[in-house]
């Protein structure tokens, strides 16, 4: 992480915290932490971290309930945890991918209450009570969702990393009524980057499913 202020190429090693974000962080540490007070007491770092866990659990975590792929999860999460990290790290649902973490690639697309959203730009606490569907929840048991079938048939994937996001987005695209033509599909799927370049095959897969009239 960058910490030095620079002007016109001259590197001034700065007084730490001379601009807002840093200052905010430091003040926060100073103020809010019974935690840091604990951590600052020097016993071995590991131990401090353990004590820290308890304090954090008591003061910092927020209890939420999420319905993920039909299963109810009661969770306690730090407010800063994104829905994406919660799915991948805590619920071990790694089908939802982290491609950029800044809402610029679409790999983390999931459905929240039926709408496609980017889980990397959603805080888990803000989804309390909502129904989340990830790629793992799309198939009906062993029976693949029509779009999953179509992606295989049309080879709408290569490395597979953008694929869950593409499929979740494609399902939404059809449900939104924005898959009526190839140009329309291309426009409304443009939030999902595929670096391998499977785009034409993905469009074919979506066209086929949409034209088949199957329920998605």
């Amino acid at each position: 992480m960058a910490r030095n202020k620079k002007t016109d190429g001259v590197d001034e090693s700065t007084e730490p915290g001379s601009f807002a974000p840093n200052k905010a962080r430091r003040t926060f540490l100073k103020k809010s932490s019974a935690l840091v007070a604990l951590a600052l007491t020097p016993p071995p770092v590991l131990k401090a971290a353990e004590m820290e866990d308890q304090v954090t659990a008591a003061f910092e975590k927020v209890k939420i309930t999420l319905h993920v792929n039909g299963t109810r999860h009661k969770l306690a999460v730090e407010p800063r945890v994104t829905l994406l990290d919660l799915l991948r790290e805590d619920l071990k649902l790694t089908g939802t991918k982290k491609g950029c973490d800044y809402g610029q690639c679409g790999a983390c697309t999931v459905h929240v209450d039926g709408k496609r959203v980017l889980s990397c730009l959603s805080l888990a606490v803000m989804q309390n009570g909502r129904k989340i569907t990830t790629i793992e929840g799309l198939a009906d048991g062993e029976k693949l969702h029509p779009l999953q079938e179509a992606f295989i048939k049309h080879d709408g994937l290569q490395c597979g990393y953008c694929t869950p996001g593409q499929i979740m987005s494609a399902v939404a695209c059809i449900r939104e009524g924005q898959a009526g033509s190839e140009p329309e599909i291309r426009e409304y799927m443009s939030g999902n980057i595929c670096r391998c370049g499977a785009y034409p095959n993905i469009v074919n897969a979506i066209m086929e499913v949409n034209q088949s009239g199957q329920k998605v």
């Binding site: 800063r80 800044y102 730009l121």
Partner: peptide, 26 residues
């Protein structure tokens, strides 16, 4: 003074992830 509103979060979270915003309360 360190609190901020959040609605969709599509820009604020981006800023927070990169250290450009550091609210103590959302």
């Amino acid at each position: 003074a360190k609190a901020m509103f959040i609605a969709g979060g599509t820009n604020l979270l981006d800023l927070m992830k990169r250290g450009l915003a550091a609210p103590e309360k959302l």
